[in-house]
Simulated assay, not measured.
Amino acid sequence: MNYTLNQLQIFLKITETSSITLAAEALFLTQPAVSIQLKNFQQQFELPLTELIGRRIFITDFGKEIAESAARIIEQVYEINYKSAAHKGEITGKLKISIVSTGKYVMPYFLSKFIRSNPGVELVMDVTNKERVIQSLEKNEVDFSLVSVLPESLNIEKLDLLENELYLIGNSEKKHKKRLKFEELFLDLPLIFREKGSGTRQTMEKFLKSHKLSVLKKMELTSNEAVKQAVLAGLGYSIMPLIGVQRELDSGEMQIVPVKGLPIKTMWSLIWLKGKKHSSVAKAFLKYLEKEKENIVKEMF
């Protein structure tokens, strides 16, 4: 057999995505290049690794076994590279972070300089909803998680990074200059919620309950970007983190609707399981944040 590391990486990505197109996008390769490498890789085995049904590609049982071996080989190659760099005094290894979807407006700024200064660090960042973020932390699949609502069910430690402010946001069609009663806004248009499990939704529901507010018309969408586009299109209002709509507010496409009790203030916090034994990379990142977070907030926010 004469397979290459590149072929192993391509096949592993195909098994993860169940798609040659998606694998090509993830690896920044053309679709024909991925198809050719897959064909060359498959030719080295007597049993088929994949099965094409219609336009869908399926991984055979044998292919899944090969993918597991490929993952171990690639991990060992990374380990060799990490050890080589570590002997030269460089910070190396994987840094795994899960963040809630609105955290994508926050976390990159706290990572940028650290990653640029340490090329031996491989970042793996999962952007998802709060429920899945907490699951990944609970299963010890990540080093850190970024949340704006702390989990009550886990014993954690935390590092506060940035204050999070949430306002009622609408598009710019109808100007709202004076403070309004909350219920008056939702006689015609709905209040747009994120899906269950979202930290933003939990914050919204807590606000409504604490102020004894009821909303007759509601809409539920499954991402912060979908909520933003719905608000821009005039489908309703939503309580949103300021940091996620700052550009639209500056351009005049959106406006803050003045309502009693808002903004809601929470805190963006990096959290980890209490007593977790951090890797050298995770320790270095935590030390970096403790030293630089105030400067990052001043410069970037």
Rank of each mutant, 00 (worst) to 15 (best):
E131L: 07
N140D: 13
S18D: 07
E68L: 02
E299T: 10
I97H: 05
T15M: 04
V77Y: 15
L187C: 05
E157V: 01
G261E: 03
D126G: 01
Q9T: 11
A33D: 13
T222K: 15
L5D: 06
T128F: 00
E141H: 09
K217C: 01
E90N: 08
L185S: 05
G54E: 04
A23W: 05
G275H: 14
F182C: 02
A24K: 14
S153K: 15
T60H: 11
V100C: 03
S214C: 03
Y109W: 13
E131D: 11
K276C: 00
K298P: 05
R56N: 12
E163V: 13
M125A: 10
S214A: 07
I80F: 14
K209D: 08
I115E: 09
S279T: 15
L221E: 09
L161F: 06
L189G: 00
E90A: 12
S136W: 08
T21W: 09
E205K: 03
F110W: 07
P263V: 12
K277E: 07
L289T: 12
F144R: 06
M204L: 05
S84M: 06
V127C: 06
D143L: 10
R201S: 01
R179C: 01
K283T: 10
K178L: 00
S279D: 04
R201L: 01
F114S: 07
L232Y: 02
N6A: 13
F144P: 03
E225G: 00
K218A: 01
L208N: 03
V34T: 14
E46R: 13
I59K: 15
L213H: 07
L187E: 13
V121C: 02
F182I: 02
I256S: 04
Q76K: 14
L187A: 07
E51R: 15
I271D: 01
K177P: 00
L29S: 06
G103Q: 07
L111I: 03
D126H: 11
E290V: 10
K94D: 06
A85F: 08
L221A: 04
G261C: 03
F193C: 00
Q76G: 14
W268Y: 12
D61S: 11
G103E: 05
V124F: 00
K298A: 11
E65A: 04
K298V: 05
L8T: 06
G197I: 10
W272T: 03
L154D: 01
E157K: 15
L162D: 06
T200D: 10
S136N: 14
Q37W: 10
A86D: 02
